[in-house]
Structures are given as structure tokens and as C-alpha cells.
Design a protein around this nucleic acid. Structure first.
Length: 465
RNA sequence: GGCGACGUGGCCAAGUGGUAAGGCAAGGGUCUGCAAAACCCUGACCACGGGUUCGAAUCCCGUCGUCGCCUCCA
């Protein structure tokens, strides 16, 4: 069984083979930290978190690097506007994003490089490109020479000639070609700067990722990821820079997530149509967003609206219901019911893996988990005991865990369970005597304590709420 | 204008040659002291028009529409 994934570079699904057996070098472009992150950023982090978790589930060791761009025009602009130190401003948004990553249950990357802390590497990278003739200094700036790069444009499918026709490119006398892009920008008065062989200044937008990726993961990596709005120019330029420098293929697979759509268009800082992560999490639990992401293809635009949030929220409850214990009174299910469940366990695992192996088809895999839930519930209704549901529920826990969902909201259930069962037992006697005031009191008081009881013809079940 | 993606039941969304997963919503039923949940049943001429094929949602061409990139962007 092999994993396949869609490679933007070739525009088709390819069999996934790593440079080093069993090891995945993964670099994901993180946010530019100049304002509050929104759920679109969260989507991207979730997409790659799900991929990483699955690759690890399939036995790979994943070396995960995500950068923060903390030196940038917008940060400088904003710091001037707010009269704050740019480093301090960036730092505060980085801390906020780190907090979001924890809230969203995203596995920490192994390294979070920042532009401000990698200046030596960045300057070294630029110098290397200048030495090889792929870049040229011009009045304190340094530009990449696109005409020297034979296959410039191959990621985004553009030709230099086409792009010139677009006429949206600034004419800059200092550039040899209009598409040449800045590797180093000379500092203007009042701007933060770093020293370099070309004078004081700061890096251009794209060179940081090349430098940091080469530094932390080596000349060649397996997966380079980010939002599909980064394909051009950011990733195109990263390829140009990195491959011109090393003479080797930079990343084997380029993986891009689709954009979060709010009222029919891309959610983005510049458009102003956004829902911040803080906003979202104040009204919904983190798994709701994760389930929204899981329920569609990572490459497609993700519809964000109240209906979708509601559906994800309900779907999450449904998954949780699958983990409810058997009815306390149950004596055991029929052989047929138990066999049906065992068979479902078998097919679910296989189907889940087959779906996820196919370019991380999480929506398909999720569908199989819902199938499993339905059969678990039916088997519980049929009188299965806790032990008889155990395997199926363990699988449900395992596979939702691979998705990064946290269905068991409260721990400590193990200690409380016998006492709750005892209360249910007593309450059953009270119900038989039709002492409903007392039975309702028990149910209400338990609800206040965080335990929901639910009666059915087959008995009473409970869950933490 | 250039490059690319997409258009599947009320909503979201899998499926990319053999006759349509799943979730939410809706209706009916079972169960039921109440509440809640669960289970069963009900629904798609796969944007439109051509073509290829024994057979297409799935491949090809065209039309319409939506979205992304081409400027900062996850």
C-alpha cells in the first residue's frame, strides 16, 4: 500500500516516496505576523497537521518546520502606525499564534524559524546567488535574475513573456528584467535594518523561506506546503532561489491547501472579510473547525458559514455518541450483531487507510468513521455490553485520534464510572416505582456535575457533557 | 488579457469509465413517564450542449457560471 499525493509541480497525483526511507522533511509556510490570525490561517495549519499525523500513523518520522515571517513591510508599516517596536509587535502576534496552535490541538513543529533570527543564513544565501551570477546588487538592493533561471515559472505554469504582457509589473530602472525580484532591500530612513555586504537593509519576502528551509532541512526536502495563494510568486521564487543555489531539486512535492471562503470570496486580511481564530474559538470548540476541514478536500476552497459550522458541530456530537458506553443493564448482543460489528471494524480500518492514502481524502475517510458509528450505535441498541463494544470504540478513538480530534472531553471518567453506574442502577429501581421526581432529580443533578443520562427502551446510557 | 481550479440531492461534501459514500436539515416510523439520543424508512436525470465508448458524474470539445493567482496574502 502506498500513499499518493497531488503535486502542484506536476499537476497530478504521484506516489509518495521520500528522499530518505521512513523520514519526511516537511516545510510549511507560516503566517506573516502583523495582525490577528483568522480561521483561514488555522485551516492551513490544520491541513498540514492532519497530513503530519497521518504520515506518522503510517510509520513515517516527520521533520516539521514552520516559519514565522517577522520582518516584512506590513509589520514595519503597522509598527509605525501604532508607534510600537516592530520586533515587539511581531513577537506579540507570534505568541498569539502559538497559543492558537495549542488551542487547535496542532502538533508543534520541531522548529519555528524566524526571519529576524536567521539573518546570517539569509545573507549567506543571497551571497551565494550573487557569486553564481543568479543575483545582482543594484543601488543597495539585490535582485534575482529571472532570465538566468531556465525553468522559471514551472511551478505556477507561467512564462516570462506572458507575465510581461500583464503590465501590472512596476517598471524599475534598476532591474534588468521587470520580473526580477528583490532578495535584499536597502533600508529607508526609520526602518529596522541589518548589516550586509550590500549595505544596511532587510531581506525580500521570498529569500527567507529558501534560507531557512535549506538551513534546517537541507538542500532537498520532501514536502513544501502552504496556501495556494503562495504558489505565485512566493513558492515560484523559492524554487528559483533554492535550485539556482544548490543545483538540485528543492522539494519533491509541492502541496497547497485551498482558500477559506467567506460569503463567496477568499477570506483575507487585505479584503477585510475575516473571522479571527479568537472569535471562532470563543463561540465554538476547536474540533468544530477541524471537522470542517476534515469534511472537505484540503485542495478545494472551504465554505465557511453558519450552516457548515452547525453541521460540523452536530457531526462532532455524533462521533462522540459512538463512544458512549453500553447500557448498564445490557446482557449481551446476539452473535449476528457482534459479528456485524466485528466486520465493520475490519472494513472501517481498511477503508479509512485507503481513503487517506489517496491524497489525504479525509472527507472519504470521515464518511467511513460515521459508518462505524452507526453500527456501534445499532449494536449498543441491540444490547451489547461494554466489552462487546470495546474493539469498535477503540478503533473509533484511534482513527479520530489520527485526525487530531479530541472526542473524550473529560478525563477522570475511569474513576467516576462505577459511581455513575451505581446511581443509574438505583435510579432504575426508582423509575420502576414511577418515582419520577426523584429520577429527574438524579438526572438534573448529574447534568450539573457534567454527566448526561439518557434513557431508552434498552436501558440508560451516559456521557460527560 | 494570461495561468489554474471548480460546478454532485435544501446546505456541506466524497466518488474521476461500469450505472451515485457520508454529515447536517426535512418528512414518516420504532422506542418512550418527561428530556435527550439512537435505530429503520423516504430523496440526485451529477451546470448546459455536443462527441468518444458496449457503457461517462467520471475522458474530449464548446457554452455558461463560480473561485484563486498574475500586487501583500495561509
Amino acid at each position: 500500500m502506498t500513499i499518493s499525493l497531488y503535486n502542484t509541480l506536476t499537476r497530478k497525483k504521484e506516489v509518495f516516496e521520500t528522499l530518505e526511507p521512513g523520514v519526511v522533511r516537511l516545510y510549511v509556510c507560516g503566517p506573516t505576523v502583523y495582525s490577528n490570525a483568522h480561521v483561514g490561517h488555522a485551516m492551513s495549519s490544520l491541513v498540514f497537521d492532519i497530513m503530519r499525523r497521518y504520515l506518522e500513523y503510517r510509520g513515517f518520522q516527520v521533520k516539521h518546520v514552520m516559519n514565522y515571517t517577522d520582518v516584512d513591510d506590513k509589520i514595519i508599516l503597522r509598527s509605525l502606525h501604532e508607534e510600537r517596536d516592530p520586533h515587539e509587535l511581531a513577537e506579540s502576534y507570534i505568541r498569539e499564534y502559538e497559543e492558537h496552535l495549542r488551542s487547535l490541538n496542532i502538533l508543534p513543529a520541531h522548529i519555528y524559524p524566524r526571519v529576524s533570527q536567521e539573518m546570517g543564513e539569509i545573507v549567506k544565501t543571497i551571497q551565494g546567488l550573487v557569486d553564481k551570477g543568479y543575483a545582482y546588487p543594484a543601488g543597495g538592493d539585490v535582485y534575482f535574475r529571472v532570465q538566468k533561471d531556465d525553468d522559471y515559472g514551472r511551478l505556477s505554469g507561467r512564462r516570462l513573456d506572458d507575465m510581461q504582457a500583464g503590465a501590472r509589473i512596476d517598471i524599475d530602472e534598476r532591474k534588468e528584467h521587470p520580473m526580477d525580484f528583490a532578495l535584499w532591500k536597502a533600508a529607508k530612513a526609520g526602518e529596522p535594518f541589518w548589516e550586509s555586504p550590500w549595505g544596511n537593509g532587510r531581506p525580500g519576502w521570498h529569500i527567507e523561506c529558501s534560507a531557512m528551509c535549506l538551513h534546517h532541512l537541507g538542500d532537498q526536502i520532501d514536502i513544501h506546503g502552504g496556501g495556494n495563494d503562495l504558489i505565485f510568486p512566493h513558492h515560484e521564487n523559492e524554487i528559483a532561489q533554492s535550485e539556482s543555489l544548490t543545483g538540485q531539486l528543492f522539494s519533491r512535492y509541492w502541496v497547497h491547501n485551498g482558500m477559506m471562503q467567506l460569503s463567496g470570496e477568499k477570506m483575507s486580511k487585505s479584503l477585510g472579510n475575516l473571522v479571527t481564530i479568537t472569535d471562532f474559538l470563543s463561540k465554538n470548540e476547536a474540533d468544530v473547525l477541524r471537522l470542517m476541514v476534515l469534511n472537505s478536500s484540503y485542495r478545494s476552497p472551504l465554505t465557511f458559514n453558519d450552516d457548515v459550522i452547525e453541521a460540523a458541530s452536530k457531526g462532532l456530537e455524533r462521533l462522540r455518541n459512538g463512544l458512549r458506553p453500553a447500557f448498564v443493564e445490557s446482557a449481551g448482543a446476539t452473535t449476528e450483531a457482534k459479528e456485524a460489528l466485528a466486520k465493520q471494524v475490519e472494513t472501517t480500518r481498511a477503508a479509512y487507510i485507503a481513503a487517506m492514502d489517496d491524497d489525504f481524502n479525509s472527507a472519504g475517510a470521515l464518511g467511513h468513521l460515521f459508518d462505524l458509528v452507526r453500527v456501534i450505535n445499532a449494536t449498543r441498541d441491540a444490547g451489547a455490553t461494554v466489552a462487546e463494544l470495546a474493539d469498535a470504540q477503540a478503533l473509533l478513538r484511534e482513527l479520530t485520534g489520527v485526525f487530531g480530534l479530541t472526542l473524550d472531553k473529560q478525563t477522570g471518567g475511569a474513576e467516576a464510572a462505577p459511581f455513575i453506574d451505581l446511581l443509574i442502577e438505583i435510579r432504575r429501581e426508582l423509575r420502576a416505582q414511577k418515582l419520577f421526581a426523584l429520577t429527574d432529580q438524579i438526572r438534573d443533578r448529574l447534568a450539573e456535575l457534567g454527566v448526561t443520562l439518557e434513557d431508552s427502551k434498552d436501558g440508560t446510557t451516559w456521557r460527560f457533557n
